[in-house]
Design a protein around this nucleic acid. Structure first.
Lengths: 237, 237
DNA sequence: ACGAGTATAATTGTATACAATATACGCGAT
DNA sequence: ATCGCGTATATTGTATACAATTATACTCGT
């Protein structure tokens, strides 16, 4: 039960490092810092009123989250996320979310099951009201519950990383189309398969859920946003 | 993510932080530091002849790799690797190595193909001679080639992480049984499927290769080495 | 002898000082 | 004018000093 809070333990929001970390992550995901932009320790530090030490430590964490790239003795740069990266991630997630659903079928607790049902119920409500922010948040939450329910520390960790990594893209697309409804319906099917103890079905549905999510993103202009090439930072400045 | 240069990897082995990071990772994986052991900044620093600063930064990285857990204002504790972790990793790897093989079938280059064939040829040689160290190294190498060949930085990175994570277990088991031969035969089959352009077959074979590797580990005393429980927190519900 | 409270020590968190490295600029030779 | 080279400057890397927090031990009252 304290498990949900546990993932924020390291990003302790009452330490300076934790606050810097969360602030920078927020700013990168929200697009305040653009791709390939250089983050300078002193500048960030002065802006937040702290010294370089907590900034540097936050940088190390941001790098392992894949949000920035640190080049020794040079600097920290916001990492770009290409269309191919997104595609790769959804391929990987399709398999792993499937595995996660399969494992969760055996391991899910009563509390987690109820939380999942509540999530879907709430999502229906906000869907009808057109509350886009809440829908996005509940979508994230659904997957978090699933990750926790599979009872595999490592799988949970891996999926969370990928999930977070595509968050910038997902928020854009979820907020600008009508997939919220379909997505929640797929969540419901996954939930019911798990509830019924049908692990194979849950796995298949979760596989397909990711494929659908990706197809939808492509339809809604992923390429225009992030470019359809797969690398080579040619432009900038 | 696609546009980073390997020689500028963050865990740069020429900086103190990078060296501390790699040393600690090595020591944790090799079992020098036991589970739940507390790592103290000054002690580590003195042992390696550096100050607390690079040690602290290395700690942040180790935490995000899942090797230690940092409790704010308290300390850093080794998280260890349980039998269940190993099982989970092999489940995940089974899927992802399959995906990797499938992608590699389309993307592999001539050079990589040749490198792979050479690897298998050499492994046969050392297998007959009973050169256990070389066999283990070539086994690692085979997977590295495959990871590179799939042409997905993210998948490659993920698989490398898991591969490294179970390395100590794999080395023990490979060096103490006769799976070397069977393993190399499976490598050959995967290689031939890729060469023949049969992506589905390559995927299936790679899936099974991981399952076989895991089954073999269990047979050869994984539980005795790492305990047959699945972790601290109760697993049974 | 026991426990609450407090002083003391040990450890981590943060700031700053100093060192090493990379980049930018300017100057001179060709 | 351009290239090469050395110096200046900016930025990161590391060490150390200091503050805050937590753990330990001790005192004191009962």
């Amino acid at each position: 039960m304290t498990n949900y809070d546990k993932k924020y333990e390291s990003n302790d929001k009452y330490s300076l490092r934790g606050r810097v970390f969360q602030k920078l992550r927020e700013d990168i995901l929200s697009g305040k810092y653009k791709e390939h932009e250089e983050l300078k320790e002193v500048a960030i530090g002065e802006e937040l009123g702290v010294s370089r030490t907590p900034v540097r430590e936050a940088f190390r964490q941001l790098e392992l989250e894949g949000l920035i790239k640190i080049v020794p003795n040079k600097g920290a740069y916001v990492t770009g996320i290409t269309a191919k990266d997104v595609k790769d991630i959804y391929m990987i997630r399709s398999l792993l979310e499937g595995l996660c659903a399969r494992l969760a079928t055996e391991k899910i607790t009563k509390d987690q099951m109820e939380e999942m049902e509540e999530n879907i119920y709430l999502a229906d409500f906000h869907e009808e009201k057109g509350h886009l922010d809440q829908i996005a948040e509940l979508d994230n939450k659904f997957h978090d519950i699933l990750y926790e329910a599979c009872d595999s520390k490592l799988l949970e960790h891996t999926l969370r990383d990928f999930h977070r990594y595509v968050l910038r893209v997902r928020q854009k697309t979820l907020a600008t189309n009508t997939r919220g409804r379909a997505s929640n319906e797929e969540h419901r099917q996954i939930m019911e398969a798990i509830k019924a103890g049908d692990a194979s079905l849950a796995e298949k549905l979760a596989n397909q859920h990711m494929i659908n999510a990706y197809d939808n993103m492509v339809k809604n202009g992923l390429k225009e946003i992030y470019g359809d090439n797969t690398g080579e930072k040619k432009e900038e400045k």
